[in-house]
Simulated scan of single mutants.
Amino acid sequence: MLKEEDWSILLKMEEEYIEELYMQILKFKPNLVITEKGLSDLASHNLSKQGVSAIKRLRKTDNSRIAKACGVVIVNRPDELQEFNIGTGAGLFKVKKIRDDFFAFIVDYKDPKA
C-alpha cells in the first residue's frame, strides 16, 4: 500500500508531465485547442489562464472537418506539433447556450475546404 508521501510524489510527477504537455502547446500561441480525447482539469485550467480555449472529446469526423476547414494538420501528441500543423483559417470561436446545453461554433472561415 502506498504511503502519503508516495502519493504526493506521484501527484507531483503527474503535474510536471501535464505541465510539459501544455507548455509544448503554448509555445505556438494558439487561441483554440481541440482534442478527440479528454483534457485534464489542470491542463484546461492553465490553458485558460493563458487565454486559450479548449474543446475536448470531439468526434473524429467533426475534428477532421474542422481541420480541413481551418487548414490544420491533426497530430496525435503535443510533442509532434510543428508550425505547419497550426491552422489559421478559422475566424470567430463562440459558445452558445441553447436550452440546457452548450454548443461551440467556429464561424467566418477564411478559405473553407469542408
Rank of each mutant, 00 (worst) to 15 (best):
I9D: 04
S64T: 14
G91K: 00
S64V: 09
P112E: 01
I34M: 10
V75I: 10
V73M: 12
D101W: 11
S40V: 11
S53I: 03
G87T: 02
E36C: 08
L42Y: 10
I86G: 00
Y17R: 14
D100L: 01
F103N: 02
Y17N: 12
N63T: 12
I106W: 03
F105C: 02
P112I: 00
N85F: 05
K96V: 06
F84A: 07
E16D: 15
A43Q: 03
T88M: 11
K27I: 03
I9R: 15
E20W: 08
E4C: 11
N76M: 09
F93M: 06
E16S: 15
E19T: 15
E20Q: 15
F102K: 09
I74G: 01
K68Q: 15
P30Q: 10
F105I: 02
K49D: 13
L10E: 13
M1L: 12
I18L: 12
I18G: 06
D100M: 00
L32S: 09
K56Y: 04
S44W: 10
V95I: 14
P30K: 00
A54S: 15
A90P: 00
K113W: 04
L26M: 07
N63I: 05
S48H: 08
L58Y: 03
L10W: 07
I106C: 09
P112D: 01
L92N: 09
C70I: 12
L26V: 07
D41A: 06
V73S: 07
P30H: 08
I74D: 03
K96R: 13
A54L: 02
V73W: 14
R57I: 04
E20L: 15
I25S: 06
K113G: 02
K27W: 04
R65Y: 12
N76V: 06
N31M: 07
A104I: 12
K110S: 06
Y109S: 02
P112C: 00
R65W: 11
A67T: 02
R77T: 10
S53Q: 09
L32I: 08
K56N: 11
G87Y: 02
L42G: 06
D79Q: 04
A43P: 00
D62Y: 02
A69Q: 07
K12W: 08
Y17C: 06
I86V: 09
E36L: 06
V95A: 11
E80H: 03
E80G: 01
V75P: 01
